[in-house]
Design a protein around this nucleic acid. Structure first.
Lengths: 175, 175
DNA sequence: AAAAGTAGTGGACATAATCCACCAACGTTG
DNA sequence: CAACGTTGGTGGATTATGTCCACTACTTTT
């Protein structure tokens, strides 16, 4: 088996994870790649930051909490659009918040199919704490200046709202 | 019908998913939020685009394939750093590529703990196809000009490499 | 008033990600 | 050289995420 090692090492064997050493091929010019990778890193950091706040662990809970806090009576389907998630998934997120006593679902006054979402007093408290943690989480990007941070976030915010408001048919783009 | 709809509708009941209507609270200034949401949208689009390429479905396979293609002999741990994923998860990604006949693992010539990764001829073909699809996927952002696309990707690329080369950034600054 | 569409829920399923333990190999240090 | 701590890769177990589809209740359209 180890007689195979007589060959000269392949060039890639010396590669390390630095921009000088790694060639990302087409991915270097692919926004999706960076979105995915950075999302991984950021999510891990976030999970650590809120690992003591059991009721709001999990991806969408924070956003749902803050959204409902800011917009009492908002509907789950709107939350789903903002989160860019499936309605059924958002439903489960809301289940979690509700069973933790942070959120209440009532029947909408204007459309009895729909639900109107509200925070409980505990939900409001949790929202305060969450806001604090979110602001703290900016430190994860501590070596970014404010200008750099703004430069990164601004195009993404713009893109985000385009996708949310425009019917984003998956795989079928405008030609 | 035990819920009483007697009350006037809450303000949030009229909220729709537009930037004029929605207030994202602190999340509006939180990079993580946009990274997560956009990642959702982009990943869904990508899954549709490659749903016929069974062997490379799943998150990290594309990146691994292209990386190994560009750097024959690269080690799994380096791939893991680039993907920002757990080593064991990358191991399973490589398992998938290997059982699909796209990739081969050999013992590294320089360190027999490590593996040297190579694409098979089918792997090279697949990499060609993947490159094509990745370029096509740019169309998902079809309403972004090239300048806007560059404006979005440039800060993220920079941030990405900072995090890869300096994991666990705890307040020290780069320059 | 029938038909078509929408809001929310729930079940079943498939991936994705984490945690932890383990073994083999490296490379120091004395 | 031999014991030690460290690193690279693998595997098991568990949990979290996300998707698909079906179903009920209600609303809107015709």
């Amino acid at each position: 088996m180890e007689t195979e090692n007589l060959n000269a090492p392949a060039p890639g064997e010396a590669v390390v994870a630095t921009p000088e050493s790694i060639d990302l091929d087409v991915l270097d010019n692919t926004l999706s790649f960076y979105l995915r990778a950075l999302n991984m890193a950021v999510s891990r950091d976030w999970d650590v930051r809120i690992k003591d706040l059991h009721p709001i662990r999990g991806i969408g809970k924070v956003t749902a909490l803050l959204l409902v806090g800011r917009h009492p009576g908002i509907r789950p389907s709107v939350v789903a659009q903002v989160l860019m998630k499936d309605r059924s998934e958002v439903g489960r997120v809301l289940d979690g918040l509700e069973t933790s006593g942070l959120l209440a679902r009532r029947i909408s006054a204007t459309d009895s199919r729909a639900r109107a979402l509200f925070l409980t007093p505990q939900g409001e408290e949790m929202a305060d704490e969450v806001r604090r943690r979110v602001r703290e989480s900016r430190r994860f990007f501590g070596d970014l200046t404010e200008a750099e941070y703004v430069a990164a976030i601004t195009p993404l915010r713009s893109l985000y709202w385009r996708l949310v408001t425009k019917p984003r048919a998956a795989g079928s783009e405008v030609h």
